[in-house]
Design a protein around this nucleic acid. Structure first.
Length: 294
DNA sequence: TCTCCATGCGGAC
DNA sequence: TCCGCCTGGAGAA
């Protein structure tokens, strides 16, 4: 279940296992069959991720554009002795072709359940990239582009962080966690943030997501809040990482002990601590309430 | 064994 | 705004 760090790791794994090698391309499920036939036997040049999008480049300026959506998965296997028969609905399968000059073992990759699997050219690829906001995992990303959108928008920051045109690669877990780490309520309007708060969140995402690429999990708790440091049981969850608020509804905040709240934002559940992330009140409201005692 | 829900998004309405 | 995608883990039955 992917946020940007998952896609980056998949792109790296695909590149390591397949780059420069000729591949058999098939679609056992059949939905990509016509495109697979066109690509079969060509050389795979590499893979890259942008936000939650993955592009696998093959000879002839052709790219397989993949988006895993919520339930898609891509399994990459390097150096296997034998390629097993496809299990389940495999939309796309890549298998390396042995070549005498290449001593590496066979690699294969299976794609299932993806929301998107299209064969595209460089123009379409460029269009997809142009629609995306800066990706904290890309060295060429410009956080000021995101700030321009955020600082002008009345939309809640929790909504803006999930908007891939504003910021690419952040999903529901990183959204909830980075807002907690910076003590920002998810409903706070983007236009009320200060630039320093945004830059701090961006810098944090750059580090957190890079760690996620290395570990394959989303860990966001600081050293003093790890299970070891606090003497508490580690989290047992399908994503495996240690987090402050994500899916911790009704549990006590690791920092202050308040009960974690949940609510829907941008069509998804989000989570926050009511004490660590106080509801934002504008200067005008604070000033008025000071006078009225509210 | 069944049912629900989930790190997401595009398209129909 | 809802539904489809059609996987897989958790908890209910």
């Amino acid at each position: 279940m992917p946020e940007g760090h998952t896609l980056r790791k998949l792109a790296d794994d695909l590149t390591a296992a397949f780059a420069g090698r000729r591949v058999r391309v098939s679609s056992p499920q059949g939905r990509f069959a016509a495109d697979a036939e066109q690509l079969d036997g060509t050389r795979l040049l590499g893979a890259e991720s942008a936000g939650k999008h993955l592009f696998v480049e093959l000879e002839g300026e052709r790219f397989v554009h993949v988006h895993l959506g919520l339930i898609g998965q891509l399994d990459v296997h390097a150096e296997v002795d034998e390629v097993p028969g496809p299990v389940g609905a495999v939309r796309l399968r890549l298998v390396t072709v042995p070549e005498p000059a290449d001593p590496r073992g066979t690699a294969y990759a299976d794609l299932r359940g993806a929301i998107l699997c299209d064969l595209v050219g460089p123009t379409k690829r460029a269009q997809v990239l142009a629609r995306l906001g800066p990706d904290p995992l890309r060295a060429d990303a410009d956080p000021d582009l995101a700030w321009r959108r955020i600082s002008r928008s009345p939309r809640p920051i929790g909504d803006l962080l999930m908007d891939q045109a504003v910021l690419a690669g952040v999903g529901n877990v990183y959204r909830a966690e980075v807002l907690f780490r910076h003590r920002i309520h998810p409903l706070r309007p983007g236009s009320t943030l200060r630039v320093g708060q945004w830059r701090a969140m961006w810098d944090d995402l750059v580090v957190l997501m890079a760690e996620g690429v290395c570990t394959g999990r989303i860990d966001t708790v600081r050293p003093e809040h790890t299970p070891e440091a606090m003497g508490r049981a580690p989290r047992r969850d399908d994503h495996g990482g240690e987090v402050y608020v994500y899916r911790r509804t009704s549990l006590p905040c690791l920092v202050c002990g308040s009960i974690i709240k949940t609510g829907e934002l941008a069509g998804r559940n989000t989570f926050w601590c009511p004490r660590c992330q106080p509801k934002f009140r504008s200067r005008a409201v604070r000033s008025a309430s000071k006078h009225t005692g509210a």
